[in-house]
Design a protein around this nucleic acid. Structure first.
Lengths: 188, 188
DNA sequence: GTCTATAGTCCGATAGAC
DNA sequence: GTCTATCGGACTATAGAC
């Protein structure tokens, strides 16, 4: 027997997702999330640096997956395609949790502070991808540009994916989005 | 004679820049900024929605300049080049206020909350540019991608520009950065 | 686990410009 | 009179200090 119910962190994440979804991020207090998870406010802040971070702790796994996939691409693959392939693989994982991803996306889209946090997470992702490209021998600014362009491609594909009307899979949308970027920059 | 010194808003902006620069964003209270400007905390929040916004109110002018420049490009110009030309023109304006721009950039770079705010401003800029492209008859996702890619190009050029060691002008760096993106997406 | 500083909101009051 | 800029004080919640 343990003194506490297990997985307090996970319970806090679930409680936050539920309350943010029901009544919105702004109309939810940390005390309410903690109470729903059977914990105290203080414990919430031990697990998460702030009220927003509770929605973003899963991002680390995605982060590492992307970096290792960029590193694992064949030597002959150019930077933008190495990034594209890594994004498609990550998109495959998100595809499997589509309902969760869409609920979370709706919560974030509804609040400016959460959108800010999401953008800085994506920026740090771009920075990590650029590092991985540099380790492949790609010089700057090509490394930074490929990473940033890749993130832009991902964002636009993701937006289309969460659109109710769109039934296509995320990896497919990512591939199309990258192709479209190539067409645009080629002056088509 | 007026009851108040004129231009309270401008005084608040100057006071904030000075204090954020001296002691950092986190170690500055709104009350201190207001006191330095000869106003009260309450008045600060009438002008600016929050403590960060005081650094970003100049962004609106840049916003409109970019949108009108995208709209003004010749019909024959493709989307990515219309965006590129608009960014170069905006870069020319920043070039004229280099010292101010660099002081402000250093303050923002030193604080995560300020970086978040900057990213969301750039995202809204990208969205406005995409709108302008759509008004030129560019369909999505080409419009969104051109706008987002343009912002990525701008960010990377701007980073290089604020680098002490780099003596090149911002418009020139923007042009180079766009050329580099074209090379990367062409598979070079 | 308690205490506290500070961001940010709300209601209202006041004073000058037009 | 209307409009706009200022100030006062009380209030809640976040987030960090102790």
């Amino acid at each position: 027997m343990t003194r506490w119910e297990p997985n307090g962190r996970g319970r806090l994440e679930l409680a936050a997702l539920a309350l943010y979804g029901e009544r919105g991020f702004e109309n939810t207090t940390v005390a309410e999330i903690a109470a729903l998870a059977g914990l105290t406010e203080r414990t919430f802040f031990r697990h998460f640096a702030d009220k927003r971070e509770v929605l973003f702790s899963g991002a680390d796994a995605l982060h590492e997956l992307l970096v290792s996939n960029v590193a694992a691409a064949p030597d002959s693959t150019g930077p933008i395609d190495a990034v594209g392939a890594a994004l498609e693989a990550a998109g495959g994982l998100l595809q499997e949790r589509r309902e969760y991803a869409r609920r979370r996306a709706a919560i974030i889209a509804a609040n400016a502070e959460l959108r800010e946090r999401e953008l800085i997470k994506l920026a740090s992702l771009a920075s990590a991808i650029a590092d991985a490209l540099r380790r492949r021998g790609i010089a700057d600014p090509a490394a930074s540009l490929s990473a940033e362009a890749g993130i832009a491609v991902f964002r636009i594909a993701f937006e289309r994916w969460v659109d109710e009307t769109n039934q296509r899979d995320l990896p497919e949308l990512i591939r199309d989005s990258l192709d479209e970027l190539k067409a645009v920059t080629a002056g088509k």
